[in-house]
Simulated scan of single mutants.
Amino acid sequence: MENNLLLQELSLLQEEYKKILIKAAKDFFSINEEAVIDEINVFWSRNKKLVHCILKYLSEPYKSYVFTAAAILDINDYEHFPFISLGTYHFWDDPIYKYAKISKKLDNTSWGGKLKEQVLSTILDNIKIIENTNGFIYILPIRLFADEEAEELIHKAASQAFLSMFKEKITMEEYRSKYKTIQDIKEALASGVEKSIILSEDDDNSLDLETRFSQFIDLNEIPLSTSATEAEVFRFRLYGFLSQAFDVMLMCTEHRLIPYIRFNVALKYLLILAGNFGDSMELSDMLFKSAVAHIVHHSFDKERINGIDFKTYCDYIRLYDFENKLFRRLDDNGITLLSPSVIKTESIIIELFNEIFDALHHVQI
Rank of each mutant, 00 (worst) to 15 (best):
F234T: 08
R212H: 04
F288M: 11
K104Y: 03
S196G: 01
D208Y: 05
E346R: 15
N220K: 13
R143V: 12
N47Y: 05
C53G: 07
K195Y: 01
L283C: 00
L140P: 07
L144C: 04
G87E: 02
K101C: 03
D147A: 06
F162E: 02
K325S: 06
M249V: 10
V66E: 07
Y320R: 14
F136D: 07
F162R: 04
V119W: 06
D218W: 00
D27A: 15
R237K: 13
S191N: 13
K344E: 06
Y62A: 05
I130E: 02
A190Q: 07
D38T: 03
T68L: 05
L270G: 03
F81S: 01
N324I: 04
F213E: 07
N333H: 13
I348W: 04
G113E: 11
M249S: 02
I123H: 13
F353W: 11
E187G: 05
E168G: 10
L250A: 00
I261A: 11
S11G: 12
Q118R: 15
K23W: 09
Y17M: 15
A245V: 07
E39G: 14
F322N: 02
L120D: 09
I139V: 13
Q14S: 10
S299H: 07
C252H: 00
R176C: 11
L144T: 13
I72P: 03
F81Y: 11
L242A: 01
E149M: 10
F43V: 01
I198M: 03
K195F: 01
L7T: 01
T345P: 13
F241L: 04
S196L: 04
F162Q: 03
K104T: 09
Q118Y: 09
S347W: 02
K23G: 09
G334C: 08
S196D: 00
K311T: 01
Y260Q: 08
S347H: 08
T253L: 11
W44R: 05
L270I: 12
E201Q: 07
N276S: 14
G275V: 15
A69S: 12
R143T: 15
L144R: 09
G112Y: 13
L21H: 06
Y78P: 04
Y65C: 12
A291T: 10
E282F: 07
V248K: 00
T336E: 02
L352D: 10
S290N: 11
N126A: 01
